[in-house]
Structure formats: C-alpha cells, structure tokens
Write a protein that binds this DNA or RNA. Structure first.
Lengths: 205, 205
DNA sequence: AGCTTTCGCTACGACCCGTAGCGTAATGGC
DNA sequence: GCCATTACGCTACGGGTCGTAGCGAAAGCT
C-alpha cells in the first residue's frame, strides 16, 4: 500500500494486523472527531500501537487518511441493470451512500484540499481513489456503446476527453450536491440529473 | 460582516482598517502557507494587530478563512454576451479563474470539509459564498427563458429543483475538474461541457 | 547461531492554541 | 469636560500536538 517490499527483505516483517488496525482506527477517529481534531497519537491509542509505528509507515496525517478512506472505495461496483440510465443510477447511489458516511465526508474533502499544495498527495489520491471511480465510467461507457445507447467514437483522444468530462460531471455534481448544497443525492434527484446528462451525451457530435 | 452593530453602541468602535488588513493578511498567508500551516498568530503579525484582536471578531480559523475567501467571490459578474451558452462560458471562465488562485483553492475546499461537522459554518459558507454563485444561475436562467433558449416552467417547485440541479452540475463539474482531476477548466473544456449541459436542459420535460 | 528490521516505550524541544489580565486609546452620553 | 463603555496591544500562561531520537526487546530470514 505505502511501501513496497522488494521480494522479501531480511529482518522482522511489518505486522499486517497493525496495518488493518491503524486504518480502522483512523476511520473510527474520523467519525468521532472529524478531520481537524484527529491526532496521530489518538489513532495510535485506538489501534493499540505506538505513535512511532505510525510515523514509520506514513509520512503524516494526510497520507494516512487517504489510505483509510481509499479502502472504502473498494466497495464500489458497476451493476448490470440492463440500461445505461439504470447502471448510472446504481453507481451514483453507491457513491452517494459513501459520501453519506461521516468518515468519508470529513476525510475525503480535507485531503483534496490539502492536495492543492502537495503534488505527491494529489497523485496518491488519484491513484488510490479517483482511478477506481473513473474505471466505472470507462466500463459503463463501453457497455453502453455496445448496446447502442451512446454514439461510438473513432478518435481515441476525443474518447479520453469525453470520459474525463463525463467523470467530472457525474462525480462533481454528486459531491457538490452532497457536501456544498447539503442536500441528499437521492433517487429523484439522481434520475433528473441522469436525464439531463444522457440527453447531452447521447446527441451526435 | 460577522457582528452587526445595532445602531451605534457606546464605547470605542472596531477598526474597519484592521478588518480589511486581517482579511488581506489571511489571503496572503493562504497563498504562502496554505490552509494547514496557516496560524492565527501568523495572520496577526502580517496584519499588524494583536492575536487577541482576531479572537474578538472570529471564533477561529474556519470562520476567518470563510470571510477572507468570500470577498473574492464579489468579483463574479454575469456578462451579457447575447446567448445563454456565451453567458455561461463567461461566468465559468471567471469561476475557473477564481479556483486558480491559490488562496481560493486551499481555503475554500478546506472550509467545506470542515463544514461537514459544523452546521453553523456550513450556513456561513452558504450565505456568503454559495448564494452569490447561485444568484448568477437564477439570473442567467431567467434571461435565457426570456430569450426562448430554455423552456419556461409553471410549477415554482419544479423551477427551484431545476435551478438547484443546474447549479450543482455547473459548480460541481468545474470544481471537480480543477481540484480533483487537476486539469484546467479552459475554453475548449468549458465549451464541450456547456454543449452537454444545454442539450440536456433545453429538452422539453 | 547471527543479522536485520520492527515494535513499544519514554523523553524531548518546538510550536500553536485559546484565554486571562493589565494599562491605554477611542468613542458616546451627561 | 467627565465618565462609562468598548476596543486595542501586550504579556503570560497551561494544555496539547508535532515529529524525532534513543533504547531494549521481539520476530523474522539465512
């Protein structure tokens, strides 16, 4: 996750149990304290490890929380509900449920904010969180094109741009609705959103 | 801004000069240090005031940064470029320029993250930042309806939902593009975005 | 065995927080 | 002009977190 083991090094290996306990303790602390009041020594206490163990594995609070939140995004799955609209609705509902969890709300936006001044952190977020979401867009899109619900594209560069645009529109709208407007991204909202989105995307270039 | 003066109170009034100096110093510190390394005593030094003066006016870092960033959003204007697409392009370009400024990037997302566990803070952000953006959507929409570019609505509740949806889609996509994907919301991107958006919004219900 | 790395523990200086207390400055009411 | 009231700058304080260093013991590999 954070430090690769080149084959097997000599010496005592790192405890995988401790890793899991630390990440779970981090999420627990995020729920109870939120990002700003979360301290590394509190996480160490909860996880039952020494504070120095945390610093051996993570550079700081930012990196730790990214890894703790990233695990939540493993749950995201692309359902096969028969139509593009239904597929998107299923994914967005899962995403909205994630953003409803307090450990996600307070952690994710905070590390994104930090990443504006920390390029390695941005890359870490991109690799472990954003890519997992984006893959859902790519897969859903190719599936819809096979069904004839979206116009196919020949130019691979144009395809990449359209995927980027779709991803930013979907994820951006849901996040903004949930965290800025503070209203739930529930069924009715999602369906009206998908309607606007698909009308725009399915039109010929 | 943060404490209303009921008519005129007895005693020495608060220095408006100090207010402006503090907010400017906050933005300056945001540029140089970013959100996480910004401290109130550093802001006090830069502004040439005592630390206690800061605490007399703002409850803490969160509220101070919200006010400092909110002033930036005063610059947003709705241009009259003749068509809805051109109007939106103008507004989004301004918004993207705002999000390019480091004092905005690092400050805005951080307070939004904090607001997930602080309802008064969320309300403060809504009133002083979000409302100013939303008004642009409302105005641009009614202008477009007068020009016949968007279908009119009879149900006022439906109208409110459409405005909310439009706002979340526009602001969300631009923020996500800029801060999460880390790519510029430049002219070509904005135009392809507007194309998708308007195709969806201009379709009949 | 011997070597290497991790782990828990303790301690440390540095820094920031948020508040209290003081004397002084600036205003409005009488 | 005097006084009550509020704002201001300054100093100081206890409490907390940070990130690091050093130590002895534990747990793997060869």
């Amino acid at each position: 996750m954070q430090s690769r083991t080149p084959a097997s090094r000599p010496g005592r290996p790192r405890s995988a149990t401790a890793d899991a306990a630390i990440l779970a303790a981090t999420r627990e602390a995020l729920v109870e304290l939120g990002w700003s009041k979360l301290t590394l020594q509190d996480v160490a206490m909860r996880a039952g490890v020494a504070k120095t163990t945390l610093y051996r594995r993570w550079a700081g609070k930012n990196e730790l929380v990214v890894d703790a939140v990233a695990e939540l995004f493993d749950e995201l799955r692309l359902p096969d509900a028969g139509s593009l609209a239904a597929d998107i609705e299923g994914v967005v509902l899962q995403f909205a449920a994630l953003l409803d969890r307090p450990e996600c709300r307070s952690g994710l936006m905070a590390v994104v904010a930090e990443s504006t001044r920390d390029e390695p952190l941005r890359e870490r977020i991109r690799a472990s969180v954003v890519e997992r979401q984006k893959r859902l867009v790519v897969e859903g899109r190719s599936r819809a094109q096979a069904r004839g619900e979206l116009p196919p594209e020949s130019d691979p560069e144009e395809t990449a741009r359209t995927i980027d645009l779709t991803f930013d529109m979907v994820a951006g709208a849901v996040v903004h609705r949930t965290l800025v407007s503070g209203k739930p991204a529930d069924g009715p909202w999602i369906r009206s959103f998908i309607r606007v989105l698909l009308l725009g995307l399915s039109a010929p270039a």
